[in-house]
Amino acid sequence: MLMLIGSLITLIGSIFLFLGALGILRMPDVYNRMQAGTKATTLGTILFLAGLALGYSHCTCWPRILTLILFIVFTNPISSHALARAAHHIGINLTEKSVTDKLAEDEAENGEKL
């Protein structure tokens, strides 16, 4: 019974992982891809690992899974922030649909890269 619940949680997690990858494919520019890529995969990984830890509790010890989940929740936003900052720094433009870009305006005003 516990195994069935765990497997369903894992299934939901894998669907989120798939949607994150689909977002990478479909979104129009780097920043939107980052939004899809980091958010959907964070919850996807949490659910996938939690389901496995629930179903196979005798061979995936839960402290290690918990550490892995904590690590992913902490590092995923940091790595996406670093990449977004680098992408803006080397001058990758936003898509044409975009409304505003305050960061580029301020950089143009100060005459230097922040």
């Binding site: 992982l17 990858a21 980052m34 980091t38 995969t41 196979y56 061979c59």
Partner: peptide, 30 residues
């Protein structure tokens, strides 16, 4: 651009972490 490639690599890494834990579970090796 190269940032797109890096983001795709990041997502692939996260999915492979999940799959490694899956393999650990089904082959019963902590």
């Amino acid at each position: 651009s190269i940032a797109d490639k890096a983001i795709a690599l990041d997502v692939m890494t996260i999915i492979s972490i999940s799959l490694i834990v899956y393999i650990a579970a089904i082959s019963q090796k902590i």
